[in-house]
């Protein structure tokens, strides 16, 4: 049965996301928790030599909205520059999920996005890797 809120796309992303998993050598890692629901997201980003986001994986548990949002965000991020990722704001995340959410459920949708902000913050506090000067992995 198809529900107009839990659309096929959202269920697919939450139940069988190709972005669920771990990277071998992630450059940026962050964890997020929604204490109200107990939703958890672990986000890993791999950066290409030119600083663009090469690969994204997430892991976690929680409601369909939190998990689908993480998967859809991962899909959006791959191939984007760090600046583009930073410009992807709160409203863009809510628009990406594309269903009307009450304030309580918006927190579920925004969990992965908030986790991304943490990951990007950790990136800006360490020198970005460049092509000619290999930088150490910031997570060491």
């Amino acid at each position: 049965m198809v529900d107009d809120f839990y659309r096929e796309e959202i269920l697919d992303h939450s139940q069988s996301s190709p972005y669920r998993g771990r990277l071998d050598r992630p450059d940026l890692v962050a964890d997020g928790v929604n204490p109200l629901c107990g939703d958890r997201i672990h986000l890993e980003l791999g950066l290409a030599p030119d600083g663009t986001i090469g690969a994204v994986r997430f892991d976690g548990s929680g409601c369909a909205i939190s998990q689908a949002s993480a998967s859809m965000l991962a899909e959006q991020l791959e191939g984007k520059s760090a600046d583009e990722a930073r410009r992807f704001d709160r409203q863009a995340m809510l628009d990406l999920l594309g269903i009307p959410l009450t304030p309580a459920r918006q927190k579920c949708c925004l969990l992965a996005w908030k986790t991304l902000q943490k990951a990007l913050e950790s990136a800006s506090s360490t020198p970005a890797p460049t092509a000619d000067v290999p930088a150490p992995c910031p997570r060491h």
């Binding site: 049965m1 269920l11 697919d12 972005y19 690969a55 994204v56």
Partner: peptide, 24 residues
């Protein structure tokens, strides 16, 4: 009804992503 929404019994490929993820 909730079960019928979440426990889909179709045989379609369970991959909704519009593009393939990059390799880790």
């Amino acid at each position: 009804y909730a079960c019928s929404v979440f426990h889909r019994s179709d045989s379609r490929s369970p991959n909704a992503a519009r593009k393939s993820p990059a390799d880790g």
